[in-house]
């Protein structure tokens, strides 16, 4: 079995005095789509912030492409091909749609994704390219956020709550597009509160509960009962 692209060992995370993650062990295999589920406050977003370097970590806790990235700054991690579609999209309001995409590709990694490829995936963005990014609808903004992450030609892409605040029909479209997006050896981590959606696109799933891994298994083998127990902590 090849080495995992991303590996966390005993990951702890703190916000000041408050500890949000307790000894999380997790790995993402090359080319797989991994789902992370969990209730609000379970530590999913904290985990994303730790992986991307927005939170600082103790050394040796996070390995990416066989390299310890625990102590690297967020921009250094991004330059190694780890991209994120952040929760709530978080586009740059003073940049146009086109500029939001360009800035995503600013790292200059080679690969299939460029402006034209993103426009081909989401044609509406080409029509709106000179608009302020905040003038778009929620679904269109999500397209920009996804396109912005793809522009970096990442090896690993993190999707943090991409269905949050979007209409069901748009969520369906986005999830249908995901397999086309994640391809050609790219690995992905999908963080979701919508368990069904998360399981449908992933091969494996982790569940977080109060900062700890409460369940790990194949997306098509874990039972509903296991998930409920892991999700809500009901004994």
């Amino acid at each position: 079995m090849p080495d995992p692209i991303l590996k966390m060992q005993g990951l702890n995370a703190h916000y000041g005095d408050f500890q949000a993650l307790y000894g999380v062990d997790m790995d993402v295999a090359q080319g797989e789509i991994l789902a992370i589920i969990g209730a609000n406050g379970a530590g999913k977003t904290t985990l994303m912030r730790s992986i991307t370097g927005l939170l600082s970590n103790a050394p040796g806790q996070i390995t990416y492409e066989n390299e310890d990235i625990s102590r690297l700054r967020a921009d250094e991690i991004a330059a190694r091909g780890l991209a994120m579609v952040p929760e709530g999209r978080q586009l740059f309001p003073s940049l146009s749609v086109r500029e939001n995409l360009i800035i995503g590709g600013q790292i200059g990694r080679k690969g299939p994704w460029d402006l034209n490829a993103v426009y081909k995936l989401f044609p509406i963005l080409e029509e709106r390219k000179d608009q302020q990014s905040t003038s778009l609808s929620g679904g269109q903004q999500q397209m920009v956020a996804i396109g912005r992450a793809l522009m970096a030609n990442p090896d690993l892409i993190l999707f943090d709550e991409i269905s949050l605040g979007l209409a069901p029909i748009i969520i369906k479209d986005i999830y249908e597009a995901l397999p086309n997006i994640i391809g050609e050896g790219m690995s992905a981590v999908i963080v979701e509160q919508d368990i069904t959606k998360a399981l449908s696109v992933s091969s494996r799933v982790y569940c977080l509960q109060e900062g700890r891994v409460s369940l790990e298994g194949g997306s098509d083998t874990v039972s509903r009962e296991d998930i409920s127990r892991a999700y809500f902590g009901i004994e």
């Binding site: 927005l54 921009d75 991004a78």
Partner: peptide
């Protein structure tokens, strides 16, 4: 402009 808008997300774009 990106850093002025949102420092965290700008870092994720590889901007120090």
């Amino acid at each position: 402009r990106a850093v002025s808008d949102n420092q965290d997300i700008a870092q994720l774009m590889g901007l120090n």
